[in-house]
Measured scan of single mutants.
Amino acid sequence: YCPACDKSFKTEKAMKNHEKSKKHR
């Protein structure tokens, strides 16, 4: 789950990829 974006991810890999993504924050 990403509190900054208020989005939840089913896998930890998806969240790690999201955190590295430029769309994050």
Rank of each mutant, 00 (worst) to 15 (best):
Y1W: 00
Y1R: 14
Y1A: 10
Y1I: 15
Y1F: 07
Y1T: 15
Y1N: 15
C2H: 08
C2D: 01
C2M: 01
C2Y: 05
C2I: 07
C2F: 06
C2T: 05
C2K: 00
C2A: 00
P3H: 04
P3W: 10
P3R: 15
P3Q: 13
P3K: 15
P3Y: 11
P3V: 14
P3D: 03
P3N: 07
P3M: 14
A4L: 14
A4S: 14
A4F: 13
A4M: 14
A4E: 13
A4N: 15
A4Q: 11
A4K: 14
A4Y: 12
A4T: 15
A4P: 14
A4G: 14
A4R: 14
C5L: 00
C5G: 03
C5M: 00
C5V: 02
C5S: 04
C5Y: 02
C5F: 02
C5E: 05
C5W: 00
C5I: 03
D6R: 09
D6V: 03
D6C: 03
D6T: 03
D6P: 00
D6K: 15
D6M: 01
D6F: 00
D6L: 01
D6I: 03
D6W: 00
D6N: 11
K7A: 04
K7D: 01
K7H: 08
K7E: 02
K7Y: 02
K7Q: 11
K7T: 09
K7F: 00
S8M: 01
S8Y: 04
S8C: 01
S8V: 02
S8T: 09
S8E: 11
S8L: 00
S8A: 12
S8Q: 11
S8P: 04
S8R: 07
S8D: 06
F9S: 07
F9H: 02
F9K: 06
F9R: 02
F9L: 09
F9M: 03
F9T: 09
F9N: 08
K10G: 04
K10L: 00
K10S: 06
K10H: 01
K10D: 12
K10W: 00
K10Q: 02
K10T: 09
K10I: 00
K10R: 03
K10P: 10
K10Y: 01
T11H: 00
T11C: 01
T11N: 01
T11P: 05
T11S: 13
T11M: 02
T11K: 04
T11V: 00
E12I: 08
E12Y: 07
E12G: 06
E12N: 14
E12H: 06
E12T: 13
E12W: 08
E12Q: 14
K13F: 08
K13P: 11
K13V: 13
K13E: 13
K13C: 11
K13R: 09
K13N: 06
K13Y: 06
K13L: 10
A14P: 07
A14Y: 11
A14K: 04
A14C: 03
A14Q: 03
A14L: 07
A14H: 04
A14W: 00
A14E: 02
M15V: 06
M15T: 08
M15P: 03
M15D: 13
M15G: 02
M15I: 04
M15L: 12
M15Q: 09
M15R: 06
K16R: 09
K16N: 08
K16E: 12
K16C: 03
K16Q: 12
N17M: 13
N17L: 11
N17I: 10
N17A: 12
N17D: 13
N17R: 13
N17F: 12
N17E: 08
N17V: 10
N17P: 05
N17H: 13
N17S: 11
N17Q: 15
N17W: 07
H18E: 07
H18G: 05
H18P: 09
H18L: 03
H18Y: 02
H18V: 05
H18Q: 10
H18R: 04
H18C: 04
H18T: 07
E19P: 06
E19I: 12
E19A: 12
E19Q: 13
E19V: 11
E19G: 10
E19C: 11
E19W: 09
K20E: 13
K20V: 10
K20L: 09
K20G: 10
K20P: 11
K20I: 09
K20W: 03
K20R: 10
S21H: 05
S21M: 13
S21N: 08
S21G: 09
S21Y: 05
S21D: 06
S21F: 02
S21T: 09
S21P: 12
S21I: 03
S21E: 08
S21V: 05
S21W: 03
S21L: 01
K22V: 06
K22R: 09
K22P: 11
K22M: 04
K22N: 06
K22E: 03
K22L: 06
K22I: 05
K23M: 10
K23Q: 14
K23C: 06
K23Y: 04
K23G: 12
K23H: 09
K23F: 04
K23L: 06
H24C: 13
H24G: 10
H24D: 05
H24F: 02
H24V: 08
H24A: 09
H24W: 01
H24Q: 12
H24E: 10
R25L: 13
R25K: 15
R25C: 14
R25S: 12
R25G: 15
R25W: 06
R25F: 10
R25E: 15
R25Q: 15
